[in-house]
């Protein structure tokens, strides 16, 4: 049987969820036996080179680029999983959701204490290479259909491991309260 293929990405996240994935310690060797990785920061493959079985998404969408990446993942992955609070709910970046984006940008580039006296020309970065900020941070499921959600900030390594092996082996997850309890 062909090995299942996994892709991962970090959108508006802190990479903590990816760190947690690495935190499965020596089981990473077992994982490599079980699956192949495609597009992912873990192996630095930048574009999809084949269709994947499972896409793990860290972070929500705060930029148009995040939306494009996420849509790409939806296109190439049979199953998409929101990993961590940022992907599920927007998480910390969504703290800005109550504030209009113009105010956020002005604070960051024009009025904040570190830029107020230095950005004399009052420039907002606007190179067309730069992605565009969205009006708020969107959880992934508001942009594309998400199949599963793994809670936690980050979800514990055991939880990720558990979920991945359950998905790969097509069985129910074994989830004692201690594994995913809030604190």
């Amino acid at each position: 049987m062909e090995k299942p293929v996994i892709a991962t990405t970090s959108l508006a996240g802190c990479f903590g969820c990816h760190m947690s994935l690495l935190d499965i310690d020596e089981r990473i060797l077992e994982l490599i036996e079980l699956v192949d990785f495609n597009k992912s920061p873990i192996n630095d493959i930048k574009t999809f080179t084949r269709e994947c079985d499972i896409g793990l998404i860290e972070g929500g969408c705060c930029l148009d680029e995040n939306v494009h990446v996420l849509e790409d993942f939806r296109k190439h992955c049979r199953i998409l999983v929101s990993v961590g609070e940022c992907a599920i709910m927007g998480g910390l970046p969504a703290m800005r959701n109550g504030i209009p984006i113009r105010e956020c940008l002005e604070e960051a580039y024009l009025n904040g204490p570190t830029v107020r006296y230095t950005n004399n020309e009052k420039i907002m970065p606007n190179d067309e290479e730069l992605p565009i900020m969205l009006d708020r941070v969107y959880p992934c499921h508001e942009v594309v259909k998400i199949d599963y959600f793994l809670p936690g900030c980050p979800p514990r390594a055991d939880l990720i491991w558990n979920a991945l092996t359950a998905l790969i082996n097509n069985r129910e997850m074994d989830l004692p309260y201690e594994v995913f309890k809030f604190d």
């Binding site: 939306v67 209009p100 113009r102 606007n126 969205l134 009006d135 942009v143």
Partner: peptide
């Protein structure tokens, strides 16, 4: 979800 709508404010603020 409408990407164009979601980008409008950010574009206006940065004058893209």
């Amino acid at each position: 979800f409408d990407l164009n709508m979601a980008m409008q404010d950010g574009m206006a603020a940065t004058g893209r």
